[in-house]
Design a protein around this nucleic acid. Sequence first.
DNA 1: TATTGTTATACTCTATAACTATA
DNA 2: TATAGTTATAGAGTATAACAATA
Lengths: 148, 148
Amino acid sequence: MTNPTGHEIAEALGLLLRRSTRAGLHAQLTEGLGEAVDELTYPVLSGLARTGPCSAADLGREVGLDRTTVTRRADRLEEAGLLRREADPGDRRATLLVLTDAGQGVVRTTRERLAARIEDSLASWPAADARAFARLLRVFVDEGPFHA
Amino acid sequence: MTNPTGHEIAEALGLLLRRSTRAGLHAQLTEGLGEAVDELTYPVLSGLARTGPCSAADLGREVGLDRTTVTRRADRLEEAGLLRREADPGDRRATLLVLTDAGQGVVRTTRERLAARIEDSLASWPAADARAFARLLRVFVDEGPFHA
DNA sequence: TATTGTTATACTCTATAACTATA
DNA sequence: TATAGTTATAGAGTATAACAATA
């Protein structure tokens, strides 16, 4: 490998994906939002925000979880008032999981906190660098080494 | 937020940190390296490669794990021949965890696979973009929204 | 017959506490 | 007294299999 770029990015990516990094970030973003929101339940909440009202089986396929796992995590989120269950009018076997207003608020808050933190850390960057980074990161994530 | 850059990066980062993304990448990088190497044991192996010979307690502090957890995971790696235990000549309470040649080989292989995958996905990029991305990602990871 | 949500079972992993040995 | 490694116990979470209801 004459080109060191791959190893440079690999090292940075390794740091980024490290468990302690993710756990710390998650703790910051969900602070004060209730103990029902943790690293296990948040993906369900966030996935539901992307898909809209959705069955447990479909949501499981979306976020890569078994439907029994979705059921259990949804139980906790329902108890906390962050989602509710509704009958699916189109399929009487299914139960739709639907975010409540409180659930939507949690998702919106975490997303805004993350965006704000990123803005803060980019504040000292030249504007052109920040724009370039956003563009390149997007391409990297969409076409990067995660699709094969 | 008049500036959309924060939200753009937040969205890309969310995709990157998603469990399914990480699990898929990990499966690719460790394919064929033996079943002792999984998402639980690899951080121990990789951390040990960074620190060099190290006690379980120190390694736990390095990678954010309880020392009992390090002990259990090290047991599996030792059974697989990827690390060995040695008496610490400087502290007779401690046992040093040391990567074997096989263990070093596993770490080297996964790192080279990741770098190669990244190189592949950057092959179609203008060289200046690739260099800029490597530089900006490094700064972002070092100074980014993960340190507060 | 296949798929829905849910529950029961067995299994894995972890955190806490305990133990012995050494600093 | 504090810290080393390890082990036992208890708790949380998951995957597998099962169930009744519906497609």
